[in-house]
């Protein structure tokens, strides 16, 4: 079981935020195969959001093969995403941390850092194609 939150001013559709949080919990090992997701009633009541928003998110998770509904019982996680990736990626994270410290030391603010990351990250596939 996990608990959802919602940032209505983020510009990201609420159902996508729910999906993202399930994936994130799977990656962090907070959710594992066989875990039950909160019911639509619990999520709608907890966040004060339209129940259809929750249903839409759960359907999408089912479609992605991450969850399955058992009628009358609930929606359950059908996949575990954790393996050892968190631990395995620790060195990468540390390098990124170092890079971020250097960027901040160079006087870059968060927005500029994000801009550098995006502009470097996005064009990659095209470079490869050339």
């Amino acid at each position: 079981m996990i608990e959802f939150h919602l940032d209505t001013r983020s510009g990201v559709a609420p159902y996508l935020q729910l999906i993202h949080q399930v994936r994130q919990a799977l990656r962090l090992g907070l959710l594992r195969e066989g875990d039950r997701l909160p019911t639509v009633k619990e999520v709608a009541g907890g966040l004060a959001i339209n129940p259809n928003t929750v249903l839409k998110a759960y359907r999408e998770l089912e479609y992605e093969g991450l969850a399955a509904a058992k009628p009358g019982v609930g929606t359950f996680v059908t996949k575990t995403l954790t393996d050892d990736s968190i631990a395995a990626h620790a060195p990468l994270r540390e390098e990124l941390d170092e890079w971020l410290s250097r960027a901040r030391a160079a006087g870059l603010d968060d927005e500029s850092i994000e801009a550098i990351f995006r502009s470097t990250f996005r064009p990659q596939p095209q470079e490869d194609a050339v």
Binding site: D7, L31, D35
Partner: peptide
């Protein structure tokens, strides 16, 4: 605290990071 998860609304002066934890903005 729900299941294996803890959710916190935290106030902290410096940057917040802790391996295995996800950090989100608050409206």
């Amino acid at each position: 605290h729900v299941g294996r998860q803890t959710s916190l609304l935290v106030r902290a002066a410096g940057p917040v990071k802790k391996p295995g934890w996800a950090v989100d903005k608050v409206s």
